[in-house]
């Protein structure tokens, strides 16, 4: 067997897997997005009408809501995760680091649905957050926290901060300590060292984590459904509405393709810094 044939043989399982579980399903979905429903009948064809529905006010707003929530979650998670990762990498003694990392991934151990419902209880009018706020006199009456966009963002941030912490931490621990010392020997302040040395070198970890956060957040149905209280719908919720009762697979497929388009755009914007191999 030539080395070329051997190479193909080695990648064949992965290629086959991608073909069966990504390319083919995506092709079916793309074809479905160009079909239309006539009554209860599915009519295959080349109809862009489903994509035109992206201009419907309710659906356009869902796109906007999804983008707003996702960008907010990504930014807040990065801002919280970076210092946490830095503390883990530079401040926590090595013997405690393993335990600290385990604590960081604890949220991954619980069911996604259970975690979302738990947040609903924590943020409810009689939940612990409102009790504490009223207990310390910050508010006189309970605040409406559950079933809001704030609740959705909180649920997401809880999860994605930990994900980002891991990707940034993986980047930080690989940095030779000498870089920071060299910068300071050359007269750089701590801020300048961070701004001009540490941050640029950890950018791949940040972008990788932020990209994963974007992808997982924008396509998530459970968290906004449980914590958002349906006061506004994100795009995955609108997709599910098409399937739940109407069984409008063509429109749901078109909206899913649009969702994938947003993910692709995010990938292209971040590709320069993306280092998925560091995960």
């Amino acid at each position: 067997m030539t080395s070329r044939a051997g190479g193909w043989a080695l990648v064949a399982p992965a290629l086959l897997w991608t073909l069966c579980f990504f390319v083919l399903p995506f092709a079916v979905m793309a074809a479905m997005s160009l079909a239309r429903l006539e009554g209860r009948e599915l009519v295959w064809g080349f109809d862009l009408g489903n994509y035109a529905r992206l201009g419907d006010p309710a659906i356009a707003r869902a796109v906007l809501v999804s983008l707003e929530i996702t960008l907010t979650v990504t930014v807040v998670s990065v801002l919280l995760a970076y210092p946490l990762a830095a503390i883990l990498a530079f401040r926590v003694p090595e013997r405690w680091r393993r335990l600290a990392l385990m604590l960081a991934i604890l949220p991954f151990w619980t069911s996604y649905v259970v975690r979302s419902y738990s947040w609903l209880l924590v943020l409810s009018r009689e939940g612990i957050v409102n009790r504490v706020l009223m207990g310390i006199g910050l508010t006189d009456a309970p605040l409406t926290l559950a079933n809001t966009r704030f609740a959705t963002v909180t649920g997401f941030v809880h999860f994605f901060t930990m994900l980002l912490t891991l990707t940034i931490y993986a980047n930080l621990v690989q940095l030779p300590r000498n870089y920071a010392r060299a910068a300071q020997d050359l007269g750089a302040s701590r801020w300048q060292t961070f701004r001009h040395v540490i941050l640029p070198l950890t950018l791949p970890g940040i972008v990788t984590g932020a990209f994963l956060t974007f992808v997982l957040c924008i396509g998530d149905y459970v968290t906004p459904q449980i914590l958002g209280g349906n006061r506004e719908l994100a795009l995955p919720q609108v997709i599910m509405l098409q399937l739940g009762r109407r069984a409008d697979f063509p429109l749901a497929s078109a909206l899913s393709v649009a969702l994938m388009g947003m993910v692709t755009l995010a990938y292209l914007l971040s590709a320069r810094w993306l280092r998925l191999d560091r995960l």
Binding site: Y117, L120, L121, S124, R125, E126, G127, T144, A146, N147, Q225, I226, G229, N230, R231
Partner: peptide
């Protein structure tokens, strides 16, 4: 005037928790 629009469990939770 709605605080939430929810399916069965969400509606039950909202009522049971005083939301």
């Amino acid at each position: 005037r709605a605080a939430t629009v929810g399916e069965v469990v969400a509606s039950q939770t909202a009522l049971a928790t005083g939301e």
